[in-house]
Nucleic acid binder design. Structure first.
Lengths: 159, 159
DNA sequence: CTAAAATAAGACTTAATTGGTACTAATTGA
DNA sequence: TCAATTAGTACCAATTAAGTCTTATTTTAG
């Protein structure tokens, strides 16, 4: 269904939660509580993020996790890559032997092209954009937000 | 990894193969042979596509499958939806009770917005674009193709 | 009109991935 | 030295995807 995994979703929630206190670290227990997630799952996600360098981990008493960079400098694509690996729509990115036919290869090449564009859009969008609150106008429409503006910028650069 | 399933990938290969003979149907056996895919898998994919109305199935002797519309009128998004259901990056599209926190909801809303843009791009791209062969210039660069042009059009409309 | 062959449609089984949990080791500060 | 905290590894469960098999339907031929 062209989706990101649950763990990646949790990662965005946790990192959005973390952006409020850049100065001092918060433990996995506290973050799990604030994000309303299970502790074991939270710990797992934070470990993966720490290993990839998106968050800093501090051991010992009064230790915990914190963002290494402000939210506006962390792209959505970086979070997805940290949690799930390289972004690709089709899985034949590294296995050339799987491709049995010549005509298929043009399909794969075009799939990669589409995937690259999607990745570019996700690279232009930041954690700060994603965590920005919604504002609904009185006629029920949702006001334009950072997300939209980012997407437009990507669109302009593409064209 | 933000990917489509193998079956969806097979579907694009099979439908690209089918576009060459819009007039008379080809059996699952023939299509499997031409696409170099296993027969049972091919049959399964064709059944799903037939059920969703993207291909027509004809029973009996000399029966088979054929596209209902020309390839340029079939969007990539339609194929993905036929094979995998609604396109969404996060899976909380229909379950409002899962969302435990207020702040999270702004994340979800923004995720949906991003997903909608991806879907729009995939809706503007057709099977004919995807199946278009590659042309590489002498300096190693890949010449601009339909896929690029479609993406640019989407980008312009977005902006 | 009957029967056989070809074919699609549906149910089922197996494999793989993901999500979630638990346990042990290492580190830090009091 | 003890308590708090993360790091790493391994494991189990559940969901999903992939592939296989059996049944039902249609068409042509005799």
């Amino acid at each position: 269904m062209l989706r990101i995994s649950k763990l990646t979703d949790y990662a965005t929630v946790l990192m959005a939660e973390m952006q409020s206190s850049l100065d001092e670290p918060r433990s996995a227990t506290v973050l799990a509580d604030q994000a309303r997630l299970e502790l074991p799952t939270t710990a797992k996600v934070l470990k993966i993020l720490a290993k990839s360098g998106l968050v800093r981990s501090i051991r010992g008493v009064n230790g915990g996790y914190q963002l290494v960079r402000p939210a506006r400098e962390i792209s959505i694509a970086a979070i997805i890559r940290a949690m799930e690996g390289p972004i690709a729509l089709t899985e034949c990115g590294l296995e050339p032997g799987t491709c049995p036919r010549e005509q298929d290869c043009s399909l794969r090449s075009n799939w990669r092209r589409i995937g690259a564009t999607v990745e570019q859009a996700l690279d232009a969008m930041t954690l700060a954009d994603l965590a920005a609150p919604n504002s609904t106008t009185e006629d029920g429409h949702i006001a334009e937000r950072n997300v939209d503006q980012r997407l437009k910028i990507v669109a302009r650069n593409q064209a």
